[in-house]
């Protein structure tokens, strides 16, 4: 078990999300930085769909009631195991009674904690993700609070070759940054496929989508990020849209002209015109973009999106293989 000693609100059990239940109006949920959670599972040798804890408000303090292997990935939350600072993207043995504490990250937004065997909450509609708005999935359909006891799934008893554990190159270090001509070093660049209503926007708006920075506002959360840009996005002739299904990454443009990126807990359907969609392979970057961060959009195609997806799969596959050499059976 993992005992939650202390948790700020909004921290919850997540996996890669829920698929196959959109016919009920149920969206994906799941980790905002799915790549970080997948990397944690790769470090531990877990199944790719094992559930972990998404920490987005701090502190998060956990106590292990059994010996296990733990991995902490995502934003560098200065994780400490019994007070000892862990490097970022790190996996190591945790002994029964030890406490893991995550603090607010200075860069990035969300940290992930995974354990060998995964967080073994019940699978609801094909996933262990928390669907907080609808109150199911995850741990009792809600965010974590102190006193919660999270079950750990079965896993072979394993430790690490180095007692202090081992780590991984973060996706920021290992993956190529989508090229964007005049982006500043701190800008997060995202590949966007133009969507159904792209052509309805006037030429200056279409140009501004790609040319100007979009600042993440404080009205940003797991449902979606509201962005702010100098030039509002306007349509030549406003048309009412019929409601349609929405996937995470859809860039909706309400009549104000300031776009919203729909994300993991976003509405599964909606009717604001969509100018583009951030590709799946770049959504993890959005999940780590804190308010005030500048986003830049780069045009993309389905073929390039698949290429980006392959790069992610390659990173995870290599990590999984190389991490396997650094774990061994526990004595």
């Amino acid at each position: 078990m993992i005992e939650v000693i202390e948790s700020a609100p909004l921290n919850a059990v997540q996996d890669l999300g829920r698929l196959g239940f959109r016919c009920f109006g149920i969206g994906r949920s799941g980790a905002m930085d799915r790549l970080a959670l997948a990397a944690a599972n790769a470090l531990l040798g877990n199944a790719p769909d094992a559930a972990g804890i998404e920490a987005q408000l701090f502190p998060l303090v956990l106590r292990f009631t059994t010996d296990t292997l733990v991995a902490v990935t995502g934003a560098d939350c200065g994780a400490r195991l019994d007070g000892r600072l862990l490097p970022p993207f790190w996996a190591m043995p945790a002994k029964a009674g030890q406490e893991l504490e995550l603090s607010p990250p200075t860069d990035g937004l969300r940290g992930y904690v995974a354990v060998a065997g995964g967080i073994d909450v019940p699978v609801v509609l094909g996933s262990r993700s928390s669907a907080l708005r609808d109150g199911f999935g995850g741990f009792q359909g809600r965010m974590l609070q102190s006193g919660d006891l999270l079950p750990i799934g079965p896993a072979p008893a394993r430790t690490t070759r180095d007692a202090a554990g081992f780590g991984a190159a973060s996706p920021w270090q290992a993956l190529s940054r989508p090229a964007c001509g005049d982006a500043e070093p701190g800008d997060i660049t995202l590949r966007v496929v133009p969507a159904g209503e792209y052509e309805q926007f006037d030429e200056p708006s279409r140009a501004a989508l790609w040319a100007q920075p979009w600042v993440v506002t404080t009205q940003s959360n797991r449902q979606g990020y509201r962005l702010q840009g100098d030039h509002a996005l306007l349509r030549v002739r406003p048309l009412e849209m019929r409601s349609h299904g929405i996937v995470p990454g859809v860039v909706q443009v309400p009549p104000s002209g300031q776009p919203i990126i729909q994300l993991s807990d976003g509405n599964s359907a909606g009717g604001y015109p969509k100018i583009g969609v951030v590709i799946d392979a770049d959504l993890w970057r959005v999940g780590q973009a804190a308010p005030g961060r500048r986003l830049r959009f780069v045009p993309c195609t389905p073929a390039l999106a698949r290429e980006a997806e392959r790069e992610l799969a390659g990173y995870l596959g290599t990590l999984r293989r190389q991490a396997g050499y650094l774990r061994r059976a526990a004595a």
Binding site: P87, F89, G167, Q322
Partner: peptide, 18 residues
Amino acid sequence: AGDILGLIAAGLVRRPVI
């Protein structure tokens, strides 16, 4: 004793220098 002083990076993984 046991403090991590650095990391050794090989491929995508890092091992601790203790």
